[in-house]
Design a protein around this nucleic acid. Sequence first.
DNA 1: GATCCGACAGCTG
DNA 2: CAGCTGTCGGATC
Length: 915
Amino acid sequence: MNAVEIEEAISQLAEQPFEAAEFPYAFLLAFGNKDTTIKRLRAGNSNKSDLGGVLQTSNIHIKTCAEGEATVTLRALRESPATARAKAKFILATDGVEFQAEDLTSGEAIICPYADFPNHFGFFLSLAGITTVRAIRENAFDIKATGRLNRLYIELLKDNPEWGAAARRHEMNQFMARLIFCFFAEDTGIFAQETVFTRTIDTMSARDSSNTHEVIGELFRAMNTRAEDRAAAGILRWADPFPYVNGELFSGTTEAPRFSRIARSYLLTIGGLDWTRVNPDIFGSMIQAVADEEERGALGMHYTSVPNILKVLNPLFLDDLRAALEEAGDNSRKLLNLRGRMARIRVFDPACGSGNFLVIAYKELRAIEAEISRRRGEADRRSEITLTNFRGIELRDFPATIARLALIIAEYQCDVLHRGQREATRDFLPLDSKNWITCGNALRLDWLSICPPTGTGVKLRGEDLFATPLDQAEIDFENEGGEIFICANPPYQGSVNQTPSQKDDMARIFSPVLKTYKDLDYVAAFVLKVAQFNRMTGSKSALVTTNSVTQGEQVAMLWPLVFSQRNVIHFAHTSFLWSNLASNKAAVTCVIVGLSPMEESECHLFDNGVVRSVRNIGPYLVAGDSVIVKKRSAPLSGLSMMQSGNKPTDGGNLILSSNERSAIASTSPASMRFMKRYVGSREIINGGNRWCIWIEDDELNDAKSIPEFRERLERVRRLRETSNGKQANDNAASPHRFVFAPHSRGLSIMVPNVSSEQRQFLPCNIADYATVVSNLASVIYDAPLWNMALIASRLHLVWIGTVCGKMKTDFRYSNTLGWNTFPVPPLIEKQKSDLTACAEAILLAREAHFPATIADLYDPENMPDNLRAAHDHNDEVLERIYIGRRFRNDTERLEHLFSLYTKMTTKPKAVAGGV
DNA sequence: GATCCGACAGCTG
DNA sequence: CAGCTGTCGGATC
């Protein structure tokens, strides 16, 4: 269940007559517990309550009671030993009149009339496994309104299928936006009489709903007609009290879809909600899901929390403005200048969704402006910050419509907050008619025409920004001091999952300037376009992106282009986990990169809550020079060749568990010679046995005499045949072979391709010739052991952690990016034999703890002393080879590696003589 | 022929 | 069910 569904279930529960015995079960059911869970609680075997209530382990202890006893009951629940024993997170007591609950983790409590408890449902959301951002939890209204509007939307489409078709989609969206505006306006004093919109529909439209659409249409028509034109337009008398609104919101057709009786009653219910409580930044991001079938299930998936938005906006420009405010103090002149500067600031979000970033930016600017006006003694002064300075582009029609509405609502709320209700209402209508949110594809639109660098309407056309670089002086002149700040959380999409249309967008942006761009994430197109725009207009920008564009192979594709546009990273946030409303959170790790086309003397690097002021930030988002490491197909430093492991592409059919292996072996003893040990990342790290079918070409007939193998090979053949992958197709005729099989004899060194960032050393191990290493690990075949000493070193881990890709924030090992690029001074034989001894010592230290796995041994909390000592010695020996002593810290390690890498890749001959 | 990646995905305590 | 940590196979070079 998502938050909206839970809210609906809870509201329904509160409307029904209170039944003391049933309430606890109904409550748990509303929070998404399964029927079987409830059944077991009823039967008593999973009910741990010692008070005759209902206690669900690790969740909640509920007890209903006689009237007037809620307080004592809650105390009893709090003090009950069973509550603690079952680790309950919440306690809840109610008599049907009063409702009391407490969050035992945070100590927060709720005491309210029974009928009001649905308004606090966010308090209990963690019962449903939904851990939300606090802002959302506290805005029950936005979730409630979204749920109701969602119902209405679906109901209307049922009766008016043509409104759902592409041709009328925009009208439908606009219709919904108008309704929302009217609900807001009638509750907040924008319409002179409270609830006039809902009441008029209720009284003027027939109960059978047959003319509801006509009534609404007439009201909309009134709001699109100026007072002086109304007589001529023949506006009906009952619609006349409604003011002229327009602002394009009510222009165009004022037709409304037909309403069923159900739809009409939904409409009236929604009108009855208290719309003063709407929070435009949250509401917008939730409501955008209503019109999108794919998103409806994952409500709030793209909600960007306010703290995350401020991570972008504060360092981009708000911190600077606040510092200027601080500096101005009470100096009237300086305050005036600052206000003038702020009035010219333009904020542009080329992927604005429902306008989250713009709304927050607007609110924050208004707060600063209000403080200026307060200090100047002009508290109720009209704001100089205009909505026209907040521009956005959004691909989907409904969010684009909502974004405009959200800004309008934000403007009104800011006026009420900073200037007072009377001033707000007086100046609000009619709405400005300019359109500042463009519905379209940001990667195809000309940003210069949507957010031109001058306020006077001169349009620069830049079809190909590279082909026609504009003269910087000219732009400075046109810009007249108004700053532009770009902020966005554009869509991410890895190359494999891009739609044909997205691939086409990528081609338009990158093909003129880069040969191999197809492995870039979709968001990279926004990064480059932003950098181009910065260079042309002098704007500064900050984007939330997937951390992939600052890692691994993408760095060498994207960042040279960004730097060639003379942009620098003037601030950055290193990887942080995304958080949103969905119960299974979007599994994505983000970074924030701030780009500036100016020379910045001071850059700010935000790393896990700590800010550092640094001279420069490189594309891997580490302090220091902007070194870019390129993939190599062979080692830079005379190391042994490392390869990918063997790739099955078998749908699991060539892979066997221990059980499967012994089952086959017992029926066909001859099968044993065709089965080899099979290891990938998981087996290297966590142990465990897997096996694979390994058949040489000349043994195929023998192997096929075993029925189980015959069937498995047939399944592999079918799978490869029907695959979309060319390589799989090509190998369909030889299902007994892995599609890629470099397996060879001899001692191998294996490195898992993915492993946890928790470990202080990269896991690696050796294998004998009988082992098949999977494509989830990299291998050095027939390996001199000193190679392993390098892999196991702290230096290598620091290198891999910086220049390779990541899985979330976990290490992802790559031969081309990490091993082949690893800079090592030339090694003499003595050094190699020292390192070999180090590697042997590490293996021996591990052996002393047989059968502990790598995961056990390298658990950072419980690493055995002898193993730690062996690694310490290994690092000592290796680091002496680099600089004659231990490095002081990882920063020094990385700086040295980067500088050695730069030397070795630019002047390889100079290094050969010794470092 | 060989990889690097996933607005991820599957396991486990 | 939430934290943890690495599968699998394809598009791309």
